[in-house]
Simulated assay, not measured.
Amino acid sequence: MSDTDWKKSSRSAQASNCVETAKRGGFPAIRDSKDPAGPWLRLSDEVFGRFVQGVKLGEYTGR
């Protein structure tokens, strides 16, 4: 698994509370950008789509 496969949103700038995404085994995956050697979560396309929609709607702002 190459670190160059992981993508961080261009909107995250230098923030340290970001997730990165990649394709793993043909499925979307996410990981904590602060811990690139740590675990990652593989999602179905449907669940990943709902996650992305939630991000766009501001559901994961931590506020």
Rank of each mutant, 00 (worst) to 15 (best):
M1T: 05
M1G: 13
M1S: 07
T4C: 05
T4V: 10
D5T: 03
D5S: 14
W6E: 00
W6I: 01
K7V: 02
K7Y: 06
S9W: 02
S9P: 04
R11L: 08
R11Q: 04
R11P: 00
S12Y: 01
A13F: 09
A13K: 06
A13V: 02
Q14Y: 11
A15S: 14
A15E: 14
A15Q: 14
A15N: 15
S16Q: 15
S16W: 07
S16G: 12
S16V: 07
N17M: 08
C18R: 12
C18N: 12
C18L: 13
V19R: 10
V19E: 10
V19P: 13
V19Q: 13
V19W: 14
V19D: 06
V19C: 12
V19N: 15
E20R: 05
E20C: 01
E20D: 07
E20Q: 15
T21G: 14
T21L: 15
T21V: 15
A22W: 03
A22P: 09
A22E: 07
K23D: 06
K23M: 13
K23R: 14
R24A: 03
R24T: 06
R24D: 04
G25I: 01
G25E: 03
G25S: 03
G26F: 10
G26M: 08
F27K: 09
F27I: 00
F27N: 14
P28H: 14
A29W: 00
A29N: 01
A29D: 00
I30C: 02
I30L: 14
R31V: 07
D32R: 01
D32I: 00
D32Q: 03
S33T: 04
S33C: 12
K34V: 00
K34T: 03
D35M: 01
D35C: 01
D35N: 07
D35R: 03
D35L: 03
P36L: 00
P36W: 04
P36H: 08
A37E: 11
A37Y: 04
G38P: 05
G38K: 00
P39D: 13
P39H: 04
P39I: 13
W40F: 15
W40R: 09
W40G: 09
W40I: 10
L41C: 05
L41H: 07
L41F: 10
R42N: 10
R42F: 08
R42S: 15
L43M: 12
L43N: 02
L43H: 13
S44C: 11
D45S: 02
D45C: 08
D45M: 05
E46K: 11
E46Q: 10
E46H: 08
V47K: 09
F48N: 07
F48C: 07
F48H: 09
G49D: 06
G49A: 12
G49C: 04
G49R: 09
G49L: 02
R50K: 09
R50C: 11
R50P: 06
F51Q: 04
V52E: 04
V52M: 10
Q53Y: 08
Q53W: 02
V55L: 13
V55T: 06
V55I: 12
K56E: 13
L57M: 12
G58K: 05
T61V: 12
T61N: 15
G62C: 05
R63W: 14
R63D: 14
R63K: 13
R63F: 14
R63M: 08
